[in-house]
């Protein structure tokens, strides 16, 4: 059974607010790099960068890229082999810049922990921030998001299903109740 939580318009509003918050906390768009975590984080990262460009049309565009964490996961020998996705770091790298990591759902925090390892292999960021569309709780690491689209308290056996036009054809966030699997995404 699925219950819709966010519509396409809700997602757009949340991303607009997150974009404003990023600009506010960074005091503008200078020295920002936005990196999405594949698959849907990359799409959200691009949308945030576009929104920032609309909010501050006179500033230089914020570089946007992707960071794949597959090779850095701590559960590689516990699940079936995962197919890695491309990592694309914008020219100019991340050294000395503020990196905003973007993902669709924040759950155990293990993906973000892996992203920290991946980031440190790419260079030394001045600061790392985290933006997520949905925070569903149940953290297993001391990790917290700086920018949250929607807090969505959930139980372990529920599934948060994020659909975006670019990957899924339609758009929305729904909670699906247990039919076997309990993992997000």
């Amino acid at each position: 059974m699925a219950r819709a939580v966010l519509t396409q318009a809700d997602i757009q509003r949340a991303l607009t607010r997150i974009s404003h918050e990023i600009l506010e906390s960074n005091r503008g768009g200078s020295d920002l790099v936005i990196l999405g975590i594949p698959t849907r984080g990359v799409i959200l990262a691009r949308r945030i960068a576009e929104t920032i460009a609309r909010i501050e049309p006179d500033a230089a565009p914020v570089p946007v890229g992707s960071i794949d964490v597959t090779m850095y996961r701590d559960d590689l020998s516990r699940t079936r082999t995962r197919t890695p996705q491309p990592t694309e770091v914008p020219a100019g790298g991340i050294d000395g810049r503020t990196v905003v990591l973007v993902d669709d759902v924040l759950y155990s925090g293990r993906t973000i922990r892996a992203a920290f390892d991946a980031l440190s292999d790419l260079g030394r960021a001045r600061a790392v921030r985290l933006a997520v569309l949905v925070d569903r709780g149940h953290r297993e690491f001391p990790i917290r998001a700086d920018f949250v689209g929607k807090n969505l308290p959930s139980s372990h056996d529920e599934r948060i299903n994020v659909r975006l036009v670019e990957t899924d054809g339609d758009e929305g966030v729904a909670i699906e109740t247990a039919d076997g699997e309990g993992e997000a995404r």
């Binding site: 090779m71 197919t83 890695p84 996705q85 491309p86 990592t87 292999d121 260079g123």
Partner: peptide, 23 residues
């Protein structure tokens, strides 16, 4: 094709300063 695509990711790592993965 899957193996060659993963090799593309590995090749990208070879161009970084840190050429090692903890995998």
């Amino acid at each position: 094709v899957e193996l060659l695509d993963i090799a593309e990711d590995m090749a990208a790592v070879q161009e970084r300063e840190v050429k090692k993965l903890p995998t």
